[in-house]
Simulated scan of single mutants.
Amino acid sequence: MKTILLKFSGPMQSWGTDSHFETRHTDHHPSKSAVLGLLAASLGWRRDDDRIADLNRFCFAVRVDQPGSMLKDYHTAHKPEVKNGGIISYRTYVTTRYYLQDAVFIVALGVSESSDMDKIVKALRSPYFQPYMGRRALPLPMDFLLDVVEGDPLSVLCSFPWQAADWYKKQEQRKGVGSKRLSIFTETPVRRSVSKPRRDHVLSLSASGRHYLARMEQETVCEIGINETHQEHNAFDALGGV
């Protein structure tokens, strides 16, 4: 098996799996349905394409490199209403939208067929439709496609270097520890881990009726070494020991 590693980072992200009407929630890490939707968009598939459900066969895992914080957005929208006589008026209403800000996630997709791997990597490098991080206003980072490596998603994520932002790494290094404990969410059975249902198994992404099933997700923790390359600047170093 080979694994594709994808990086989701930026000022804001949104990964809702349970949103209704005027309240739009976000989960604390990317959903499988959102990532598969991103793949389908990159491949040029429409929302009602039957091939999207077949992508569920890919092994999925996500590592939280930088958890970020929750942001609540006050948002207004206008809804047109037709009154007697055909007069159109607009009703203003408030929507509440939630985002994750300053978060970094590494998503791993395990793919068995080499033909699938080549097709997906090519599409991610040159997407047909514009991919985004949950909502159209949230673009992907430049280093979105990190690597393609041998191994299953869980083992690859346990050894892949920490991808948090420099300022966050400095924050952790000041604690004086040599490693960082990172959460990994996977659908692969892990010993002594607790499974929880998550409704992000895609049946259809059609705009006329999106349908999902619940899948079991498990959390495990791995330790990643902290790279000691970020040091405080000392202006007197340029004086050569004077």
Rank of each mutant, 00 (worst) to 15 (best):
K2F: 10
I4P: 06
I4R: 09
I4S: 10
L5R: 05
L6A: 04
K7Y: 05
S9W: 01
S9C: 07
G10T: 09
P11F: 07
M12S: 04
E22I: 15
R24H: 15
H28R: 14
H29L: 08
A34Y: 02
A34Q: 14
V35Q: 07
L38P: 10
L39D: 03
W45E: 12
R46C: 07
R46P: 01
D48H: 15
D48G: 01
A53S: 15
D54E: 14
L55M: 14
N56A: 04
R57Q: 13
R57M: 10
F58N: 00
C59P: 01
C59N: 11
C59L: 13
F60E: 04
F60Q: 04
F60P: 06
A61P: 07
V64L: 04
D65R: 06
Q66N: 03
Q66R: 02
P67Y: 03
G68H: 08
D73W: 03
D73I: 06
A77R: 13
K79R: 15
K83C: 00
N84T: 12
I87G: 01
T95P: 00
T95N: 12
T96Y: 12
R97C: 00
Q101L: 01
Q101I: 10
D102S: 11
A103I: 11
V104K: 04
V104F: 06
F105L: 01
I106N: 00
V107L: 02
V107G: 02
V107M: 02
A108W: 00
A108F: 00
L109Q: 03
L109F: 04
V111I: 15
V111K: 03
V111N: 03
V111C: 04
S115I: 14
D118H: 09
D118W: 06
D118S: 09
A123R: 08
L124M: 11
R125Q: 15
P127G: 01
Q130H: 07
P131T: 05
M133W: 15
M133R: 10
M133G: 11
G134P: 08
G134F: 07
R135H: 12
A137M: 11
A137P: 02
A137N: 15
P141M: 09
M142D: 12
M142S: 12
F144A: 09
V148W: 06
V149A: 09
V149R: 13
G151K: 02
L154T: 12
S155L: 02
V156L: 09
V156T: 12
C158H: 04
S159I: 09
F160L: 15
D166R: 10
W167S: 08
K169F: 00
K170H: 11
Q171I: 08
R174C: 03
G178V: 05
T186D: 09
E187A: 12
R192C: 08
P197L: 02
R199W: 07
R199M: 13
D200C: 02
S204C: 05
S206H: 10
S206R: 11
A207T: 07
A207F: 06
R210K: 14
Y212N: 06
A214L: 00
M216T: 07
C222P: 04
I224D: 06
I224E: 05
G225D: 13
I226E: 12
I226W: 04
H230A: 05
H230T: 08
H230L: 11
N234A: 09
L239Q: 05
G240L: 09
